[in-house]
Design a protein around this nucleic acid. Structure first.
Lengths: 180, 180
DNA sequence: CTGAATTTTCAGTAATTTGTGAAAATTGTA
DNA sequence: TACAATTTTCACAAATTACTGAAAATTCAG
């Protein structure tokens, strides 16, 4: 499959960024081409578009599946598997947030909890546990938020995010009008 | 410098996580020991605590400086440089968010803008641009939010984050009571 | 059930990233 | 200014991660 110059340059950029996003170059490129192309793509097309081996594509697809970022579909009369990204960009964002949380926060939260269970052996450990507690509480709040986000419709999420600079004011209003 | 068993196990964990956080193993370990230790540390102490070379510490500190994650201080009568993390965990979180945004979002936002300026050469490019527009708008909103976050006090940030499941309700209330 | 089409696995290699020691540069005090 | 203490740089080595082709496994139409 041939890709346009515009797609090509975007694909290269997302490849560069891939590693910063906890993926890697190839995964970034693969997801870019899938997201930016309207029609579902099969592995051979991706392999050709990105000039990477078929086996590399297979491994990449496996990874993208584990991130829940792609949808598998079949085309009548064609035995190949075709992949596409959700058409709703908010759905992609929601998925990314929750999957990153799983990978970046959950394991740490569990380790922090373990550390809090231990008996501090001296003042140094007491300070350490104090810090651990702070981190733990913060991360738990972030987890609550990402869970909340999962339950929100794309419309509501868009509204919330659009509030941007308004959020601080809403907080004030809430304090003043609703909770006292 | 000797570190306690508790700190040791936390340091190892943060090392593991380091790479998932856009840092790397050593950087994760270094920041962990700095955050979890009450007293400011010098490069030799870090080198000894983590069993890594002095030059590696130097490079790591350089990187942590570029992330604005550590504070340099001097101890009277000692020529060495000592480093510590902010005592306010929210300050650390704010810094992490803005620095990650700089590295993970800003460059992409700029690339997406460029792509939107181009003239689509066919329908395929038109679809691509539509997707690019969606991503661009979403990322711009996230940027707005992180900017907003920078201006918020730790107390306010904690209040906001604590709202957790309440956020959705606040949104509803805002719609009903305040904007009509 | 058979076999061609398709996908996955995996061992070896290639590419990239990280870590080290030695040397250079910088700092600050006497 | 001179020099010892300290930090930084950098070329190379070590470790890790990513990619490939070939072979194995799976799928499904006939």
């Amino acid at each position: 499959m041939k890709i346009t110059a515009m797609t090509q340059s975007l694909v290269l950029h997302f490849g560069e960024m891939g590693s910063r996003w906890g993926l890697n170059r190839t995964l970034g490129q693969m997801y870019a081409v899938i997201v930016l192309t309207e029609a579902p793509l099969n592995a051979d097309q991706i392999s050709e578009a990105l000039q990477i081996s078929r086996s590399n594509v297979s491994m990449g697809l496996k990874e993208l599946k584990s991130w829940n970022l792609i949808k598998l579909q079949h085309i009548p009369g064609d035995r190949k598997e075709y992949f596409s990204a959700p058409s709703d960009i908010w759905e992609i964002a929601r998925t990314l947030v929750v999957e990153r949380r799983k990978r970046e926060l959950d394991p740490t939260l569990s380790t922090l909890r373990d550390a809090l269970m231990e008996q501090p052996s001296n003042e140094s450990d007491e300070y350490t546990q104090m810090r651990v507690k702070q981190m733990h509480d913060l991360m738990e709040m972030v987890t609550l938020w990402t869970n909340e986000m999962q339950g929100m419709s794309s419309e509501k999420l868009a509204t919330l995010l659009k509030m941007g600079e308004g959020i601080s004011k809403i907080l004030d209003v809430k304090d003043k009008l609703l909770l006292r």
